[in-house]
Design a protein around this nucleic acid. Structure first.
Lengths: 216, 216
DNA sequence: TCTACTTGACTGATCGCTCAGTCAGCCTGC
DNA sequence: GCAGGCTGACTGAGCGATCAGTCAAGTAGA
């Protein structure tokens, strides 16, 4: 009983417990700021167990990104495929929604760690570091290309270059806004809340769609 | 001669040399990943000199942000004031341009370090860490409020909440795109180049303006 | 069914190293 | 001669990683 109560998510494997803890600590402190000791402590395992399951710190980080990005991008791919399956081209709004919604449904919990993975993503996305760009290339470039293709099919007037820019601008908005920094609330004296993902999405989608159409 | 040749920017003070070096190293490795040893080495000073000029690592980081943000935001404030001085409301495009152009003119050199400060900004902007948010509040919230006011004056139909969101979305696009990660080139097979700031700005401004108008 | 052996999960102790920060004292120009 | 700029030598703390060893759960042979 007590042991189960102490465990954050009873029943999950220690392997997953390490990944969960890693997500929280990496998000809060950054790659270098995060220490394996703290991750082990939060996962309630010995530090050496991390090295047993993962070769080193870099591989733990990659495993964490891989797990989350697979969940998000599989969801994205399924939605996008469903949209593009029909004869008629879908609405741009539907495509953009399918790009962002998975990040709030599987990439953003509702607990204290809401936005944790989004912050990691933001740091990876805006980094020129070779390790981060390699991660972006492996786990996010394939789905990016699928969305760029979709944008061109929905807006035939959009050149390839503009489609790429449009996608990257959209991701730029999404990634910074999902990070749940608290800045919207501060700047608006409490009116705007980046903790309310649905409210935010209701603004992001029209903003991004109008921006994309302006490039076409 | 030799000593002067070794110095990166002959004539500048060692104080500034430390700040320049810090900018490059913090941008490349992040706050925790950056080491004072490496910064001292790049600035060609003894490590202890950093502690002579700056109380500690956190204060060095803040001094670096303060120096750059002052240059960028003074430039922004001057442009914005000039735009808002006239009787007639200026074009939205002019306001958005005045928001981004200073970051490429004073925040982004054309050398190897182009985008260095933008990457730092991106990590600060997408962080929920108390230290980073305190920096954002001190150095970027005042100019942010000025721009939010300006947006409402140019687009009277824009509510306060929407103006705040619009500003944050715009910053989200700008900050991720100025970071010069190389991802645009990779995703576009070489067509798009985030090293060409002018070309990028020519797309960002219409994208953002159309997005803002969609919220009004 | 008992015993001997194997395996996979896991741990505490500790390694070599790097970190930010300190301090006594050395130059150099006024 | 002294104040301010600056340095080399040093420290305690914390880092990622390693390693020998524990322990429970099989598996196999008699």
């Amino acid at each position: 009983m007590d042991a189960a109560a102490q465990q954050e998510k009873p029943g999950e494997s220690r392997f997953d417990a390490i990944l969960d803890a890693a997500e929280g600590v990496f998000a809060a402190r950054g790659y270098d700021g995060a220490s394996l000791r703290v991750i082990a402590e939060r996962a309630q395992v010995a530090q050496a167990l991390i090295h047993y399951h993962f070769k080193n710190k870099a591989q733990l980080f990659e495993a964490m990104v891989a797990r989350r990005s697979a969940a998000i991008n599989d969801n994205r791919a399924a939605r996008l495929e469903a949209l593009m399956a029909g004869e008629a081209a879908p609405a741009l709004e539907a495509i953009v929604d399918s790009l962002f919604r998975p990040t709030i449904e599987v990439g953003r919990g509702d607990g204290d760690d809401a936005g944790a993975y989004a912050r990691i993503l933001a740091s990876v996305a805006s980094s020129a570091d070779a390790r981060d760009q390699a991660l972006a290339e492996r786990y996010y470039d394939p789905i990016a290309r699928a969305y760029i293709d979709a944008l061109q099919r929905v807006l035939p007037g959009l050149s390839r270059a503009d489609a790429v820019w449009a996608y990257l601008f959209a991701i730029g908005v999404g990634v910074t806004m999902m990070a749940k920094t608290g800045r919207p609330r501060r700047l608006s004296d409490g009116i705007c809340d980046d903790g309310n993902a649905e409210e935010m999405l209701a603004r992001i989608v029209p903003f991004v769609c109008a921006g994309i159409r302006a490039l076409a």
